[in-house]
Structures are given as structure tokens and as C-alpha cells.
Amino acid sequence: MIGPVMAKRVFQSAIVLFLLVTILFFISRMSGDPVLMLTEGAIEPEEIEKLRVAYGFDRPLIVQFFSFIGEIFRGDFGNSVRTFEPATDMVKSRVGISIKMVVPAFLVYIFLSIPIGCLAAVKRGAIGAFAMVVSLVGQSVPSFFLGILYIYFFAVTLRWLPVFGSGDWTHYVLPVATLCGYPLAKYTRLVRAQVSETLTMEFVRTARAKGLHEVNVIRRHVLRNALLPVITTMGVDVGTLIGSALIVEAIFAWPGFGTLVVEAAKTRDYPIIQTCGLLIGFLVLTGSIIADFAYGLIDPRIRRGE
């Protein structure tokens, strides 16, 4: 039963991606003549006219739009306005650098938030309260300030860890810890809320009544049910993760995808921005489809379409 549902989801996502292409295209044309913006009025009017023809900006907007879409299907996202390199090459070379930071952070917060959240839900009282206070504070400290706090304490004052550059694992500690901060707090709270709600269900009492060990009750009965909304949230949160990776890269001068986006925004290099926007949209939509799919795998009721 999962086939048609997934097909519908993929179709909807394709529509959203198309809307995204449209909006990115029209925003870049809304600010007036792109040639004037690129050259900033530094060249002769005849030259501007030549450039306009060369880039195809003299054609009607709708024709430009369809040729833009055609180029995207051919894998051509245009060239950077500043370096004249193809946008796809620039993005590709930067994504790999970002993944080195995002994937460890993702693993860390997944494997920490679930046990901590469970513990906070099961052991009420001091431990639970402490975990909740810390996570509420953690949720309120924006990642750029968290990063600066880490730098101040661990790099400037204590001199334990390096801030910039690349090399051995120590260079990863601060960026990864910064990137983890917000999601770790958020998921700990979410897991705790879900687990304590599931603990009040009747099947938990049944599982305990038949003499199951508490660890097994939690692992096999509670967590399976409690983690479903957590998975959905993770799918939706791909965008947030990319957003915070961007800021963390800016703090630690990490030359990845995020730095590329910020540089492009500052230098108004919109072919690069368009490419990055599309890639982000694609990743976010894929993330939520994967989350839906995982949801189906874990919950047989969804799989059967109930």
C-alpha cells in the first residue's frame, strides 16, 4: 500500500521543486536589468547591449524562463558572475567539505538525544529536571553565540582546541559541538515529551504486567511508538540543519557550502545562489520523503494505509 502514497508524495514534491525554480528565476529578474546589476554601470551602453544579447536577456521573460528550465534539465546552472566558473562545479567542490562537519554532528545528536530524552522521561525528579533546564537553555542560545562561547572558553581562555584551519580530529570538535547544540536540545525535549506520553498508554502496562524487564519495555514497546514523530521532525528539519551549518561555517571559517552561499549573497552572485537554493530545496524535499518512507517501515499501520 505504500507505493501509491509515496508516488503521490514524490509528485507533490516535484511540483514544489518546480515552484521553487519559478520563484528563484523571477526573484533574480525582479531587481531590474541583470546586466546593469552585474556590471554595476561600469561599462559603455553599447557594451551593455552586446552583453544583453550574449546572455539572452533581450528575449521575452517567458522565453528566458523556459530556456532556463531547459538548461537545468541539461545540468547547466549557469556560470558564476564573479569567477565565471560553472556553478555546478563550484557547488560540488564545496558540498564535500560541509558533509565532513554535518554528518558527524547529525550522528552525535541522534545518538545522544534519544538516550538522554528517555532518561529524562523515565527518571523524573532531579536528573530529568536538570536535563530539561539545560535543554531549554540550549534551545535559546543561537548557534552563532554558542560557537563564540565555545571559542572563548576552549580556544581563547583554556587553549585546548584550535579554532580555524583543518587537520586532525581536534579541528572538528568545536564546529561539530556548535552545530549539535540546538538540535540536541530540541530532540532531547521532543523525545522526552513523546516517551512520557507513551509511558501512560495501556500497552505499556500490559508489557510490564507480563513481566517484561523495564529496559525491554522501553526499547521494544515505548521507543517504537515514541520515535515516530521524532523521525517526521528530523525529515522536516533538514532545512534547519543546513541553515545552522551555514552559520557554523561562517563562525569557524569552514570553506564549505554555507560559506559559498554567504559569499554569493554578499557579492550578489545570483547564479550561484539559484543553484544553491535549488540544491537545498531538493535536499529538504528528499529528506521529508525519506522520513515518510522510514515512518512506513517502522509503523505497519501506515504501511497498510490505515
Partner: peptide, 14 residues
Amino acid sequence: ALPLLLMALTVAAV
């Protein structure tokens, strides 16, 4: 699909 922070960067670029 394109969170506000990233959309804001796009708009700032233009």
C-alpha cells in the same frame, strides 16, 4: 523547502 534564512540570503543577493 527553502527555509527563511536561506531565502533571505537569496533575496539579499538580488
